[in-house]
Design a protein around this nucleic acid. Structure first.
Lengths: 348, 348
DNA sequence: TTGAAAGCGCTAACAA
DNA sequence: TTGTTAGCGCTTTCAA
């Protein structure tokens, strides 16, 4: 059973492909096609089970109704939720998602961007980028591929982006610890350390200390590598909890770090929050179930997806309107969403 | 900066499109193109940053290097892990994934299948199906769209599939409880109840009881609805733990059920495992962190993806070889992977 | 060793 | 109100 084409439908009806195409694209009235003919077309389309070939359509119109999404790791619940929220928002507009994981590997991400944008020519691209160098995005801008940065942005702030207030979130988290009377707070971040999310969170940490006139000790800012997370974290937790620092709290810069830190702390036979408090960015469902439940910063994931789609569609439409020059400024295409402190029992 | 086409490259070199195409597809030697010419082509391709347009290629060859994946919900960590494992296996062969969530909605799933297979014409399709009626898959078989069922299959067993041994897993879980001396075990499954995974797990539960000569009480088999999970589970947990049944253990048929059951039990102020034991299918990372950690059946997710891809590629290749009639039998295209019991502290 | 030309299935400008 | 035709960018037969 071969799939039927526009031509098959047209032949079966004894009309032209044009006619069928016009009806299918809802342009029957626009072209003044008689109601009767239109109905005949619809009936035959139904009968033959005809579905327009998206590939051919794309080749002709340049539109595929496919968008690309690149995240660090789709199996990380944080990105899985983001992906779902983006998927839902896209579906509402008739789009589907090509989803790829970069594993925080810049080379891989650059390849993926090129594959999605240049080869598959997605209609739009959403990237939670791990790149340090904005060159790939300059290229996308030049070749007018609509794209936006999700969750992470570049220092320049020149590209359209939807992010959350990482600085503020970190500040809230640290302030919460200070309010609880803990002020010797170790921080564990991870490489690649150029990520805006991580930098902003560190800034938030510093801001909170400064506001409370607490001395910043650089030795308490630890960095672990993404490739060697587990071992590194065990080491750093050990370092922070031992003399001379003996921190009373650990601020994990993302959910993965928090999880491994939690294990490391338990492994040392220490109690949370009695012996050490633990807070994390990236609230994930898991944190409600740990012992004790972990205080974390929750991000409005559904809104991230919705805003991202709205903005991307704006960019996709703008693309056609030639007059508008957008490339040197984000033209208001920059959204920062507020975050929420989820207080649980990991800080006493 | 417009993207360059084959023609642009050809013109720049003063050769034909054919030549460039042949070189690009690694057929230079096959067609006896001179080394010198080949090199000139590669150089120009590099210089102009030319990337072949996958859409045009697809239209011509019928191959897009895109595969479809439909799961219930990509934000469910279980499916997120599966998706990642499938993505990795696909990438190794140069393929990328269009990923969609069906929300256990049969209508939605049928639509998605049609969109991916008929409109986008993916080269292959992997479905963790929520459908009761195999009709959609009969259609795919007829129109020779390579596909396979992942995680869930149909009673007929006629379609290619990669699943895990759900029956055995459930039996192991129940046997584990029995070994611990708990034999009054309530089971919570969920609708849609026709899913092979759920049915097989229930069979496993029954088999374990039978082998141990324990009477099966149908009243202990509870079903909650996917749409109203939380409330239903609270109700059923309540029912099972109260007189007259007063079960000593609850077997959650999947990870979502387990999570809500855990909350419900905690909410009632009961202790696990002292007051009631809890076990679950679908091991997720979260279960290691709950209090207490939950004993569960772990599935070989990476292997699921690998086997799925291997089988799908087999089907995709077979498709071309006309002689082979495969449609009435799975021709060995049916893999059932073993599962593992992860004993933790939720059973005493 | 290379090129010309057809055609994948669709849309849209133009013609009738 | 409907049809003819060109062409999106590529691969592939056939010819040279």
């Amino acid at each position: 059973m071969k799939k039927s084409s526009l031509e098959d439908v047209a032949k079966a009806l004894g009309v032209s492909k044009t006619l069928v195409s016009m009806v299918l694209n809802g342009k029957a009235t626009q072209y003044g096609i008689s109601k009767k003919t239109e109905e005949r077309v619809w009936k035959m389309v139904e009968e033959m089970g005809f579905k327009p070939n998206a590939t051919a359509r794309k080749l002709r119109t340049g539109k595929s109704n496919v968008l690309g999404l690149i995240v660090a790791d789709i199996s990380n619940p944080f990105y899985a939720k983001i992906a779902r929220s983006v998927e839902d928002a896209a579906n509402k507009k008739g789009y589907h998602m090509l989803i790829c994981s970069s594993d925080e590997n810049p080379k891989r991400e650059a390849d993926l961007i090129s594959i999605l944008a240049d080869q598959h020519q997605v209609d739009g691209l959403i990237v939670s980028s791990t790149l340090d160098d904005p060159q790939m995005f300059d290229k996308l801008t030049l070749q007018k591929t609509p794209f936006l940065l999700l969750d992470r942005e570049f220092a320049s702030g020149l590209f359209p982006s939807v992010t959350v207030d990482n600085r503020k979130g970190a500040e809230m988290l640290v302030q919460h610890l200070l309010d609880k009377g803990v002020n010797n707070i170790g921080l564990i971040t991870l490489s690649p350390s150029h990520l805006s999310t991580l930098k902003d969170r560190i800034t938030g940490y510093k801001d909170a200390l400064k506001k409370n006139k607490i001395e910043l000790k650089d030795a308490l800012l630890r960095e672990v590598s993404f490739e060697n997370l587990r071992e590194d974290i065990i080491k750093e937790v050990d370092f922070l909890l031992s003399a001379p620092h003996k921190v009373r709290a650990i601020f994990a810069l993302n959910n993965l770090v928090a999880l491994y830190a939690l294990e490391a702390i338990h492994h040392k036979g220490l109690k949370i929050p009695q012996d050490v408090a633990l807070v994390s960015f990236d609230d994930i469902e898991l944190f409600r179930f740990t012992s004790p439940p972990i205080t974390a910063i929750s991000q409005p994931l559904e809104q991230l997806g919705e805003h991202a789609m709205e903005m991307l569609f704006g960019l996709m439409n703008n693309k056609d309107k030639e007059g508008v020059e957008n490339g040197t400024s984000t033209n208001g295409h920059r959204v920062v969403l507020p975050v929420e402190l989820m207080v649980r029992n990991s800080c006493g």
